[in-house]
Computed example of a mutant assay.
Amino acid sequence: MSLDPLSVCAAEANILATLLATSDLTAPVPSCPGWSLADLGRHTGGVHAWARDAVGHEPGTPPGAEPPGPAEDATVAAWYRTQADDLLTALVAVDPGRPCWTLDRADRTAGFWLRRQAHETTMHRWDAERAVGRDAHIDPTVALDGIDEVLRMFLPRQLRLGRTSATEDTVHLRPQEMATSHSVGNGAASVGTVSGPAEALLLLLWRRTTLDDPRLTVSGDRSAVDACLDRPLTP
């Protein structure tokens, strides 16, 4: 089943907006150390606004800085809802093939932002649900596509920008929902495999969980696997 990024983004943004409007905005977000729930709303709303602007920019012209959001926590929920609605309006109206500025040198089209914002919103909805004590989950179809996004777009970009280091080792990720595996690293040495649900593997790549997650099974050299994955593979 293929990802429907617009539907995912709309559904996840609605959940996040509702959480912000009905929860204690001073609650800490454990998966984003140092942030409160209000900070999470400001960040995600700012990213929505930034992505909306990017859709309208030519490929060689990046948008400006993300807006910081309101200073007062009490207005964050309404502000986030506005940013999400404006983003969705722009994404519905745009031709996915329209050239624009993106994070991916190989894909300078508006379709990039449909996918990226679906994953951005999903991950931060998960962060918010965990912050308020809910049992958060990510749909397997979304998680499988998210793994692909990390390994095909974010990791190469992190390496290109010098935000992480290359490694001689390779780790294989084997989601239980598919027959094939993904590789982390381009080295000749295969040091091990991590198997489990796509959700848990995606959370591992985004440092929302660890190899100690009971859903994950590690084979091979565990310390080498950990070293290969314990790098900033994503921003």
Rank of each mutant, 00 (worst) to 15 (best):
R125W: 02
D86I: 01
V92A: 12
A131F: 04
S181W: 11
L87C: 10
L205V: 06
S190R: 08
L205T: 06
I147A: 01
P175Y: 07
R152N: 14
A65H: 11
H182V: 07
V92I: 10
A143R: 05
Q176T: 15
P99G: 08
L144F: 09
G97E: 15
G133M: 06
G162R: 01
L114I: 06
E72A: 15
E149N: 10
G187Y: 09
M123P: 00
R125S: 03
S181Y: 01
A189F: 08
V76Q: 04
T170V: 15
P140S: 13
D85F: 00
A189N: 10
D148R: 14
V150I: 13
T167A: 14
L151A: 10
A179Q: 12
Q117M: 13
V171N: 02
E199C: 08
G69F: 01
G97I: 09
R152K: 12
E120F: 06
S165M: 06
W79S: 00
A179R: 09
H172V: 04
G192M: 10
A74F: 09
R134T: 06
Y80A: 04
T167V: 14
R157P: 05
G192S: 08
A136M: 05
P96F: 10
A93W: 00
D73C: 03
D85T: 13
V76H: 04
V150K: 02
H124P: 07
R207E: 09
E168Q: 12
L155Q: 05
A179T: 14
T122M: 01
A93G: 09
E66H: 09
L201N: 00
A106Q: 14
Q117F: 03
H172R: 13
D73E: 13
P63F: 06
F154L: 13
T122Y: 00
L91F: 07
D104E: 10
L114H: 15
D139N: 14
L87S: 07
L159E: 07
T89H: 11
A77K: 02
A179P: 00
G162E: 05
V184E: 02
A90D: 01
H119R: 10
D139L: 09
T109M: 11
M178R: 15
G196M: 11
A74M: 06
D169N: 13
V92T: 12
V191G: 04
P156F: 08
D95Q: 12
F112M: 07
G187I: 11
V132Q: 05
G196N: 12
H137V: 12
A106L: 14
V171H: 04
Q158M: 15
A198M: 03
R207V: 05
I138A: 04
L201Q: 03
S165N: 01
R134Q: 13
L202A: 06
T109K: 14
G192K: 08
A93I: 09
T193M: 11
D95I: 13
P197W: 03
A93E: 14
W126F: 11
R108A: 15
A128V: 03
L204N: 08
T89V: 08
A131P: 03
T75W: 06
P68S: 12
M178S: 11
R208L: 01
L173R: 01
